[in-house]
């Protein structure tokens, strides 16, 4: 994978969401060369009726991530700048998905279409924020 620019990303104004799913589409295009509303690292969730505001969820890049601690295989590791990385070789497709359950925000999903289902990790490409037409996200380039 080509690593381009990386971004600080925050879902700052979820109530501005208009339900266009541009962030979700951009993420799945970036990660999987497809449009997919389940295989993504950013989510637009609908709750009970479209009359309710959309719920926009993305990784908050915790400094001490519970998802990392929850993985018995140590397949996830915490990054110094916050957030996580996955060592695919260590992820065994555990079927208990402790990492997913550990994130109470619900920002971590499993790629069930992969041979070995494993968590989908945000690589901070910033496409979700870039394609959002309503400024739901706050984002800026990371200086390393």
């Amino acid at each position: 994978m080509v690593i381009g620019m990386r971004f600080h990303i925050e879902v700052l104004h979820p109530n501005r969401c208009i339900g266009c799913y541009n962030c979700v589409y951009a993420c799945s295009r970036h990660l999987y060369n497809a449009v997919d509303v389940n295989r993504t690292a950013v989510f637009v969730r609908e709750t009970g009726s479209l009359e309710n505001p959309y719920h926009v969820i993305a990784c908050r890049f915790c400094k001490d991530p519970e998802c990392v601690k929850a993985c018995p295989q140590e397949a996830l590791s915490a990054l110094p700048e916050g957030g996580i990385s996955l060592t695919p070789a260590k992820c065994e497709g555990c079927k208990t998905y402790d990492c997913v359950h550990a994130c109470k925000l619900g920002a971590l999903a499993i790629d069930f279409k992969a041979k070995i289902p494993s968590p989908i990790v945000c690589d901070r490409c910033g496409d979700c924020a870039k394609f959002c037409p309503h400024n739901v996200f706050k984002y800026e380039e990371m200086k390393e």
Binding site: I18, G19, C20, Y21, N22, Y25, V35, L50, F131, P133
Partner: peptide, 12 residues
Amino acid sequence: RRKISCPGCPVA
């Protein structure tokens, strides 16, 4: 009160 888009359209 609000504006709404179709999924896949940024216009609302």
